[in-house]
């Protein structure tokens, strides 16, 4: 029998557990030239801010062993323009649309949450973990008190489930995760990128104009997996696992660690079809192991 890939997450039905990660997939238009976006469980759209943002000056990318550093800095057209021109396009596909939001202040987060939940996105992903902007972003995600106040503010106005995206650039990620859960978050997503840098030794300058950037790709997968495992043990709300997933095996490890959904990001740069191959690989694994659904492996890590 064909295994059932459907997942219930924060009260929403997802047709399969494979989503694409914010910042790597734009608003879906470019990848829709390669495949029908309805094959995805969901799309976490490029990070939105209240007003349009230019982002950081280039170069914004550096390759590292099995990873990349980026310092895009939340370039986006702003939440109103997204609702007007990008959301109608995404709505043409039968997939969950998850709007990722970043604010400079708590008020900005709640204003965006109001606009987007009125526009009927399926879920909000509250970004308190972008390492590439000075104000807001990571500043909210490294302190349990501010993580809690952002979460509360968004929850107070949102008509759709609220997922908070956590940063790995903290001493104890579980402390932040618990603060978000206590503040009413419906779900958590982790991890965002790990802060890093590279230097061009010929020029004696940083490779990135922004000096530091966020590391993603297979290099960070073991860190992401460890954090997902720790957070899943600490909280009761569901977790979307991400960070360097490049094949179905990685996704399955995330399920064993306790993730309900997974998100694919950097892997799409090498292979635009990576999310579909990962979905296929998960299905084949479940079949081979005679598992009826993801419930049979989720959190079933044997540690004795």
């Amino acid at each position: 029998m064909k295994p059932d890939l459907a997942v219930t997450f924060a009260g929403l039905e997802f047709k399969n557990p494979v989503t694409v990660a914010s910042g790597t997939f734009g608003f879906g238009r470019e990848y829709s030239n390669f495949f029908d976006l309805s094959q995805l469980g969901g799309i976490c759209v490029k990070g939105l801010t209240l007003k349009a943002r230019e982002g950081n000056p280039p170069p914004r990318i550096a390759e590292t062993p099995m990873g990349i550093l980026n310092s895009v800095g939340l370039q986006n057209p702003g939440v109103d323009e997204f609702i007007k021109t990008e959301l109608p396009f995404l709505r043409r596909f039968n997939t969950r649309v998850i709007a990722n939001i970043s604010g400079n202040t708590v008020e900005e987060y709640s204003l965006m949450a109001e606009k987007l939940s009125d526009a009927a996105v399926d879920m909000l992903e509250v970004n308190i973990s972008c390492p590439n902007i000075r104000a807001g972003g990571l500043a909210f995600g490294t302190n349990p008190k501010s993580a809690s106040s952002v979460t509360k503010a968004v929850k107070a106005v949102s008509k759709v489930p609220v997922m908070v995206k956590l940063s790995p650039n903290v001493t104890d990620i579980c402390e932040i995760a618990l603060a978000c859960e206590d503040a009413g978050a419906d779900a958590l997503s982790l991890i965002n990128t790990i802060l890093g840098m590279r230097i061009d030794i010929e020029a004696g300058r940083p490779v990135l104009k922004n000096i530091t950037g966020g590391l993603s790709g297979p290099a960070i997968f073991p860190v992401a997996l460890r954090m997902v495992w720790q957070v899943c043990k600490a909280v009761k709300i569901p977790v979307m696992g991400m960070g360097g997933i490049s094949g179905a095996e990685d996704a399955i490890e995330m399920f064993f660690a306790g993730a309900r959904l997974i998100s694919v990001g950097t892997a799409c740069f090498k292979d635009p079809y990576a999310p579909l191959k990962i979905r296929q690989g998960i299905e084949e694994y479940l079949s081979r192991k005679n598992k009826a659904s993801l419930n049979d492996i989720r959190g079933k890590l044997i540690t004795d």
Binding site: P59, A62, N70
Partner: peptide
């Protein structure tokens, strides 16, 4: 420019462009 996805989704290979008709960029 150094590129990521190459198809326009990841926004890493940016260059500064004058806004049409305006002073902005």
């Amino acid at each position: 420019q150094r590129m990521g996805c190459g198809i326009g989704a990841c926004l890493v290979c940016s260059c500064g462009i004058k806004s049409p008709g305006g002073e902005g960029k």
